[in-house]
Design a protein around this nucleic acid. Structure first.
Length: 290
DNA sequence: CTTTCTGTTAGAAA
DNA sequence: ATTTCTAACAGAAA
């Protein structure tokens, strides 16, 4: 669920809320979420503070003062939410903890001012782990080009996607391009007029250039609109994203293509549900699907 | 009721 | 080395 735009929105929404506040309590109800020795985890964080929040792909780093960091991955259904339970300033947030099912609240950090940072995850695929500076370096190197970074150039993009598999699988593979998931992969292929099951090595120069351009545009716009909320996604303040009305194909099966009126189809590419316009993204058989 | 599907990805298998 | 498939989990949809 949370892809680059959603994770970036979580980062931005938490940034003004949780930095430089002493962590006075750590409550963990699902130890499996913590990928460290549990005592180490508590000892490191108790009385400590976050000094920055960074992101690479879909992974967040809550930075600690000594260059180590708490890495947090939300996977499918994870949420990181700021809660102001102090009630002293009258400014309640849109999603109070009461609207979350407490049985899926797995980790709660309480700060000195009584505000909290809550990790909630229905499917429990998400995790958090304290890493040192060296481990962090190593993780950063495993990710591919970042769509919103300085070095996201046509040349680098082209190099990254030269792989002998479908373009959709390439877009989804974090070690080639960071941050793209199933929603934006479909939207990107559609906007580029590329059949997602096409082999990445068979793409023309023109198609590669188009894919590059629309990746930057779509991801950039989705960040501006604070991501896509289809069902569960919320930012760090419980707000829904605003990109849903801009989706062209994702979860629009059977609805008319906004460009040509053909009905959007759902196919399977690399084991993933994939949405296409059969006319705007003609496949190997001329666009009649597979 | 059972089966299938879901926004991710690490790790096994090919 | 690279690419493909499955498991991890819970719940909604079919």
């Amino acid at each position: 669920m949370p892809e680059l735009p959603e994770v970036e929105s979580v980062r931005q929404s938490l940034l003004p809320k949780i930095l430089h506040k002493s962590i006075v309590n750590i409550q963990v109800t699902k130890k499996e979420i913590i990928r460290n020795d549990f005592n180490f985890f508590v000892t490191e964080l108790q009385g400590n503070e976050f000094v920055d929040i960074q992101r690479r792909g879909k992974l967040l780093f809550l930075q600690l003062p000594d260059e180590s960091a708490l890495a947090v991955h939300l996977k499918m259904t994870g949420k990181l939410l700021f809660e102001d339970t102090s009630g002293l300033y009258g400014g309640g947030h849109s999603l109070s903890r009461h609207s979350l099912d407490p049985k899926h609240t797995h980790v709660v950090f309480t700060f000195a001012d009584s505000t909290q940072l809550v990790f909630h995850d229905v499917r429990r695929f998400g995790f958090m782990r304290i890493i040192n500076a060296q481990e962090k370096e190593k993780i950063l190197l495993q990710y591919g080009v970042e769509p919103l970074a300085e070095n996201f150039t046509l040349e680098n993009f082209k190099k990254a996607i030269q792989r002998n598999t479908t373009i959709k699988s390439v877009l989804l593979n974090q070690k080639y391009i960071a941050g793209i998931g199933n929603i934006y992969a479909d939207e990107i292929c559609y906007a580029a007029g590329v059949y997602p099951a096409k082999n990445a090595k068979q793409l023309s120069e023109k198609e590669i250039k188009k894919l590059f351009q629309v990746t930057e545009e779509i991801i950039g716009k989705a960040v501006k609109l604070r991501g896509t909320t289809f069902q569960d996604y919320r930012d760090g303040l419980g707000r829904k994203g605003g990109y849903l009305p801009h989706l062209s194909v994702y979860k629009r099966t059977g609805k008319p293509c906004r460009q040509c009126g053909s009905l959007i189809q759902k196919i399977r590419v690399g084991g993933r549900g994939t949405h296409i316009c059969p006319t705007c993204q003609p496949g190997v058989d001329g666009g009649r699907g597979i």
